[in-house]
Design a protein around this nucleic acid. Sequence first.
RNA 1: GCAGGGGUGGCAGAGUGGUCAAAUGCACUGGACUGUAAAUCCAGCGCCUUCGGGCUACACAGGUUCAAAUCCUGUCCCCUGCA
Length: 374
Amino acid sequence: MQSNSNPDNYTTPREFGAEYIFLPDATNGAVRYISTATLEKIGIKGVVTNTLHLLILLGIDRMRNLGGMHKFMNWDRWLLSDSGGFQVFSLIHSGKWKGEITDNGAVFKSPRDGTEYQLTPESSIDIQMAIDSDILVVLDDCRAADITREEAEESVQNTINWAGRAKKHFETKYGGSKKSGKKLSCVVQGASFVDLREKCAKELVKIGFDGYNFGGYVVDANGELAVEPMRAVIENTPEDKFKYAMGVGKPQDILTAAKIGYKVFDTVLVTRNARHGSVYSFDELDTEGLLHIKNAAYGEDLDPIDSTCDCEACQNHSRAYFHNLLKAKEGVAYSLLSQHNLRFYQRLVDILNKNMEDVKECDFSDLIEKEQNK
RNA sequence: GCAGGGGUGGCAGAGUGGUCAAAUGCACUGGACUGUAAAUCCAGCGCCUUCGGGCUACACAGGUUCAAAUCCUGUCCCCUGCA
């Protein structure tokens, strides 16, 4: 297979998480409406794939036969695989799918055809190895942010137990990180209970992982980021291991998490917002960078979405073009706007990396101003 | 010309005496989405309002009735069949 060209001469760095990195979600092996070549062109350094959804789409044997997702996607940059732990929350705990959670993991029953899919701490690792992921995540018991202490304790206990089993399986079957060349990360749970976060983190450190991820639903009922729980994870895990704030988030939330000490981020918001007509622009910082392109005001606005942006959408088309194409539900609008929002996020992360020493002191607009006055 | 059917909110289309400012869909106007079951979901959508309600409305004009989008009469328009 031919390797994609790397227009920005990007080479995969040896240390994952040494720099700030944003990973868009390629749940089923593609970022929605975006090709692999486009991801590279925009400067995206890695993607997140999903264990449960790829199990459903391809199954473990076909995934192996296809040579794993790097090869299948023709993607040679970072590939992280989420364990299916989030689907324990988003599908089972939410009641959208039938299923059950036991000491042994989770069973998901698809409402499409009734097929049952089981994820155990061990099978999740096996599937992620078949994915050919660079960074694996152990299965965790993810829950909503507003659960009771009792539920949070249960979530933490399952998460710790499953993490221990996953690590053991990863070592005995695949020889661990050294032999496999892959990184194994775990997820710290505990909802909004800071002491539970601390306990969960400490137990996971005893088991030992290459990275520590902040898990759970990251915002409370008011949409506020879970700052104190996030801090507890950083304070109770080794400094030299990468920290991944799973599902974070809005641009401001990424900055907040970065200040706390997280380096790795992902969120579905970037591309979902694009499809829904919420696009980002450094021209609109007073509205947190967000612009609702479907609003009537943009029907004849011939300016680009972002005058400072070098993406295909901004270089070639106006706000009015996307306003009207979205009204007509034209697919190319979903594609180009997703590309634009991804480019915005990549630029944001580039700014964080350029100002790594100052991130803790700066607020959002400071960093942007610094970048624009350069 | 005769016979039959029909004219409802921006559009399509329910409703056929009171619970109808009028279902539903589309369009329109906002909003929400944070390890993707999401090209999804929520709200508003005659005018006014002190949010209790008030007013004007179902082609037009009359009428019956305590009460009419719904029944009657006339007018105008549209469709189908026969001449």
